[in-house]
């Protein structure tokens, strides 16, 4: 097995993820690109897990190289990263949906970071309710 193949695949996937995060405007697509990056890291962890020990054959059996008798730590880290990604997607989508409920948009360019907009939001709600009432009356 040539270890360079999964590593190169992981590097390309990470580059694609960076490209997607920077290019996409839709928050859900940004989350998808983040998933690609996390998977690239997972792939590197698993590949290192299966190649590093074979690469250590000529090395003296030092304590740092064999901390546990059978080092499968890369796979376990990958499992942990998968769990972290699931938590991240859950909270991220909750934020996206809440923002959509407030503003009817999921476009990241239009997120106002610098205004303190309590009043703005409540005023929006008031006008929306008023328009709904007018629509009911007129129909």
């Amino acid at each position: 097995m040539h270890a360079v193949i999964p590593y190169v695949v992981a590097a390309l996937l990470f580059g694609l993820g960076v490209y997607g995060v920077l290019k996409r405007r839709n928050a859900i697509l940004v989350l998808m690109a983040v998933e690609l990056m996390l998977n690239a890291v997972n792939l590197i962890l698993v590949a290192a897990d299966s190649t590093i020990k074979a690469g250590l054959t000529g090395v003296q059996p030092e304590a740092w190289a064999y901390a546990v008798p059978e080092p499968r730590a890369g796979a376990i880290f990958a499992l942990f990263v998968i769990v972290l990604a699931a938590a991240e997607v859950g909270v991220g989508l909750a934020i996206v949906l809440q923002f959509y409920r407030l503003r009817r948009a999921v476009v990241l360019d239009e997120v106002a970071l610098h205004e303190h907009d309590h009043e703005q939001v409540s005023a929006d709600h008031a006008t929306v309710a008023e328009q709904n009432r007018n629509a009911q009356v007129s129909s």
């Binding site: 992981a10 590097a11 990470f14 580059g15 993820g17 960076v18 290019k23």
Partner: peptide, 10 residues
């Protein structure tokens, strides 16, 4: 940026 990161890592 993405191509730079990907190609650099590769």
């Amino acid at each position: 940026i993405g191509g730079g990161v990907g190609l650099g890592l590769t």
